[in-house]
Every structure is written in C-alpha cells, then in structure tokens.
Amino acid sequence: MTADAGEGGEGGTGALEGEWVGEMLRVARHGDEAAFAALFGHFAPRVKAFLIKSGTEPAQAEECMQDVMATLWQKAYLFDPARAGVATWVFTIARNRRIDLLRRSRRPEPEDLPWGPEPEPDQVDVLVLQQESRKLGKALKELPENQRELIEKAYYGDMSHGEIANLTGLPLGTIKSRIRLALEKLRQSMS
C-alpha cells in the first residue's frame, strides 16, 4: 500500500503501516503532506459517496468533503490505531459533519478518556484491531444482499421498524472485545 513502509527512525513504525495507519501517524506527527495526499486519494471519493448517499446535494458534497478531510488533518493527533481503523475514524468525522449540515442540531459526544492515545501504540494491538476490522468488513460483504441493504439504510438515515428488527445478526462480538481491551489498557496505563 505504501512505498516507504518500514520508516526507520520512529521506534519501528514498520508494523504500523497497513490500512493507512502509517499515513495517519505521519500526518499526526510531522504534518506530512505526501501522506495526506495519499489518504485524500483513497478517502475523499468515499467520503463524497457517503455524503451523497445520505442525502447531501452533490453540489454541496465537494465542499463538505473538503471540510471533512481538513478536519482529518486537524484531529489526526487524536487518532488511536489501537481503538479504531482509519476508515472508522474518517466515518465518524463525516457523520458528524453530516449532522451539522442536515439536521442543524448539536451532537453531544461522550467525554474523551482523560489520557488520550498513547504516544507509541502497541503494534500487536494495532494489528489485531486491523484484523478484526477486516473480518467485520468481510462479514458485511458476505451478508445476504437484503440484510446488507438494511444496514446501509440505517447508516444512511432511512430505516423503519420492521427493518431494524432484522439487524440483529451484526458480527460485532470480536471487534467489541478488542476495543474494550484497548480502553482497559488505557485506563490501567494511567492509574
């Protein structure tokens, strides 16, 4: 995915390269514009697709997408690869922007953990979370067409009662356990 995997001088970020994590960390630590351009190439069309599918006018989607990607730059230092994949992080930014735009209401956010991401994420934790994210993606892909459509409807803002009742089969158990563990580790490391 990246040509410069295995960057040497940073305590061995080599294992932290996959799934756009390396690019995110370089944006966060060095304001690396080349890494940002790579992220932009991959995620900007996806953010635009997400915005359009959830009701943003195509004319507005470009503007809104730029805003989302600029926020990605500004909040990169808060990204914790042991707790979320880059796609998930981008999703949360795009979703929040969509709420501002379409609903014009505030979205209360849970308070941050007082100790934020660790400066050097544990590579094993990051890799396992990536595996779990891939498994989740694969499971979503393999869902029967109609069930997948229902989940999309939920996330793009168009869902009814009979439909949500069918959403029980989401395979969240294992990724949830990893995130739970990451939260526990964060709390322990500071207490």
Binding site: K53, T88, T92, P110, K141, I151, K176, L183
Partner: peptide, 22 residues
C-alpha cells in the same frame, strides 16, 4: 463505549466498501 465504537466500525466498513456504488 466499546459497543458504540464497534458500531462506528460498521460505519467505517461501509464507507470503505461503498465508493464503487455511487
């Protein structure tokens, strides 16, 4: 919080996969 963040991961997976469909 962990359950909420795993639902965020579902959103992330949809965002990752859906570009081709628009």
């Amino acid at each position: 919080r962990a359950r909420m963040e795993s639902f965020d991961a579902v959103g992330g997976a949809l965002l990752e996969q859906d570009a081709g469909q628009a």
